Amino acid sequence: MNFRKFLPWIIAVVVIFGIYSYVKGINNTAVTLGQSVEQSWGDVQTSYQRRNDLIGNLVNTVKGYAEHEKTTLTAVIEARAKATAVTVDPTNITPEQLAAFNSAQSGVSSSLSRLLVSVEQYPNLKADASFLKLQDELASTENQILTARTRFNEAVKPYNTHIKTFPNSLFAGMFGFKEKAYFQSVAGAEKPVEVKF
């Protein structure tokens, strides 16, 4: 048997197997990194859901004390409803989806801040143990949201880097992998907060 006769076939099989392994590695790494992004997005949503749950309890507690703050309470409830109506597809997070989500959540933060400022007029409410506990939980949840958003951005970076790096970018498009958006700060966040007494 002549070995040279089969040499071109052996080389072709080795080359095809090498290309297959390389492309499979690109795909599998992108899938793994994409799953990390989706998990991180789930953590972001869980943190915001926790805040939304706390807001309901906070509003009910304030209602009992602050009858004159109906417009502020209504604004908080409406902002929460708008925020929960915005959905983002974790498999295809676009900058537009993330901006809409961020804007809705910013509305919640803004109306919640107004509510907490208005509470200053009610000393009995400020001293209420359940209100103080809710306020502490809300502050803790805001920190969790910041952490979850940071971790989300940290998960997006290696995914985007992987699919945008040459030659991975050639194959990533063929497999349908698209760049994912980062969380950005809300417009105007770079300005210092004006505090009035």
Rank of each mutant, 00 (worst) to 15 (best):
Y48T: 06
D53M: 06
E38S: 13
L58E: 00
S40I: 07
A85M: 01
T87D: 00
Y22G: 04
W41H: 12
E78R: 05
K70C: 06
K24V: 01
V23C: 06
Q49H: 07
T71C: 08
T74N: 12
I55H: 01
S36E: 11
A81W: 00
V62S: 05
G25K: 02
Y22K: 03
T84I: 04
R80N: 02
V86W: 04
I77L: 03
T74V: 05
N28R: 02
I55C: 10
K70G: 07
K82W: 07
N60H: 07
Q35S: 14
E67A: 14
L73F: 00
T72W: 04
R50G: 11
K82S: 07
V88C: 03
F17I: 15
Q49W: 07
K63A: 13
V86Q: 05
G25F: 08
H68D: 08
Q45V: 09
H68E: 04
K24E: 05
I55T: 05
W41M: 14
V62T: 02
G56L: 15
V44D: 01
T61K: 12
G25M: 12
G56M: 14
K70S: 14
G18M: 15
A30K: 00
L58F: 01
Q35K: 12
T46D: 02
Q35A: 15
G25V: 01
A30H: 00
V62W: 00
T71G: 04
S40C: 07
Q35F: 05
V88I: 07
A30T: 00
A81H: 01
V44I: 03
A75F: 02
F17C: 14
G42P: 05
Q49M: 09
E38D: 13
D43V: 08
N52S: 15
T84E: 04
T29Y: 03
T32S: 14
R51P: 06
L33K: 09
T32H: 11
H68R: 12
F17G: 15
V23M: 02
